[in-house]
Amino acid sequence: MPLEEKQHYNPLGRLFYRLGRLWINSYVGKLLGIIFKSIGALFSIDRKRFRTEFRQIVMQVFFTGIEALPLIALIAIVLGTLTITQALTVMPKMGFTDFFGNLMVIIIIRELGPVLTAFLIAGRTGSALAAYVGNMRVESEVDALETMGIDPIKYLVMPAMVGGIFALIILSTLFSTIAIVVGFFVAKGLVVVMQSMLEGKLMWDHYLDSILMSLQAMDFVMIVLKPLVFGALITSNACLFGMSVEKDIREVPKSISRSVVYSFITIIIANLILSLAYFVGYIQTISTVI
């Protein structure tokens, strides 16, 4: 029994103490712990010292945002083109051409855009971050920071989280924009080439109007909120599993794989919660209007 528990608590207190320890040592407890510590570090930042942390944030934005852009753009073009061409093969036959904008908003802007971007960043940047932090642990670099009086949460985790979130918001917006705009023109090209197979007509003005008409005010909130939550989850999972590496180099690949898997799982759960919240809010708004 730990010394502090033995000394300070009666049986009921001990039960709560143990429940508390169980919560703190659980995955969710640790994940929330690292997120809240980072938020605390962000708000307790010394303005004079910001230069050191700002450098780390810029490096993270560069690595997460700029270097990942070609990959994000490619996937966005493919997804946009596929969605439009698939819709073209089915919707005109069923007489749903007017709902084209709704379909694009729901699939690209609300759901797949933020989630796919987050998955790509979790696989690319999250894994790299977990490996970086894990190697720093193995090489005692994190210990070295502490012995220099430098808090690893302030120096490593918080800048990675802020940079990751910032980059993900930009990338997610770019993903949706590229999927909708470039996807449209590629699909239009396909319609010209494959006239016999694709029946519908693609008019830019009509397409753009229907998308803009389908957008709700809440969509603009979600465009920022989803990448913000996903970015926090990706970077905190990467740092959590990277930091959990002890002194064995064989733990690093395990931490990378766990970081990616747990990022995927938490992103899916967070997306479900946010989409449900959006849906409930949407239904309530419609009921009020009716």
Binding site: N135, M136, E139, S140, E141, D143, A144, L145, E146, T147, M148, G149
Partner: peptide
């Protein structure tokens, strides 16, 4: 320990930030 008591540590593997 580092800040209040001014203790510095030199690691066996140097542990320089890579």
């Amino acid at each position: 320990i580092a800040l209040v008591h001014k203790v510095a540590f030199v690691f066996q593997n140097s542990a320089l930030i890579s």
